[in-house]
């Protein structure tokens, strides 16, 4: 088990390899389709994203009516591949060190990871309760005009569990599993089961 602590750096992230199980402590900024599109369209981010991590997540957030405080009730990852057209450019333009999501991303993002010193962290899909427990506080919200699940939520997390599935050296666990399982599939297709 490895640890990645705030403030994050490109050097620390370059040390991570595909298959590493990592506990992240520090800040995360949520961002999904609408945020990526807006950033990609060149709108200046409302907060400096350099050396930060973007979390592909549309959290369920409740606001305490009395104190106005926000609280996360569920915060699992959403499917990352929808950001494939934008992700590499967001890495280049805003200097992020990584993204967290589920399902992995494609060759364009993999090349972006290598070029700009980023990694792709895979969170456990569906584990909404475990992941919500790792969030200590909601510190700010930006671009709330996009709607609550699409807004940028600034979260403080402790030991948020992820797996590196795409590293900064051009390796992708997704590509590896895909080709190994395809080999097995071809074998199984040739067998005559019945």
């Amino acid at each position: 088990m490895k640890k990645l602590n705030y403030p994050f750096t490109h050097e620390a992230v370059r040390d991570l390899k595909v298959g590493d199980m990592v506990l992240i402590s520090g800040k995360l900024f949520t961002g999904r389709d609408a945020v990526h599109k807006r950033l990609h369209d060149g709108v200046k981010p409302p907060v400096d994203l350099s050396n930060q991590i973007i979390y592909h997540c549309g959290p369920v957030i409740l606001q305490d009516k009395k104190t106005g405080k926000y609280q996360v009730t569920a915060a699992g990852p959403t499917t990352s591949i929808r950001e494939e057209p934008y992700q590499a450019d967001v890495m280049k333009d805003y200097g992020i060190v990584g993204v967290i999501g589920k399902g992995g991303m494609g060759p364009k993002t993999l090349a972006g990871c290598k070029e700009y010193g980023c990694v792709y962290f895979h969170a456990i899909g569906g584990a909404a309760q475990v992941l919500a427990e790792k969030i200590n506080s909601v510190d700010a919200v930006y671009w709330l005009d996009l709607g609550s699940p699409e807004a940028i939520w600034e979260l403080s997390v402790t030991e948020f569990p992820v797996v590196v599935t795409m590293d900064a050296h051009g390796n992708s666990l997704h590509a590896k599993v895909e080709s190994a399982s395809n080999e097995q599939l071809q074998k199984a297709l040739k067998e005559n089961g019945h």
């Binding site: 199980m21 369920v60 569920a74 699992g76 584990a127 309760q129 475990v130 569990p161 797996v163």
Partner: peptide, 27 residues
């Protein structure tokens, strides 16, 4: 392995959701 790691988190999530009587997954 990462597989065991994932299954352990899934197991913990099942237990936590039950204890808190909260949706297992946000979807």
């Amino acid at each position: 392995t990462t597989a065991e790691y994932a299954m352990n988190i899934i197991k913990a999530n099942i237990e936590l959701a039950k204890k808190k009587s909260q949706p297992l997954c946000q979807d």
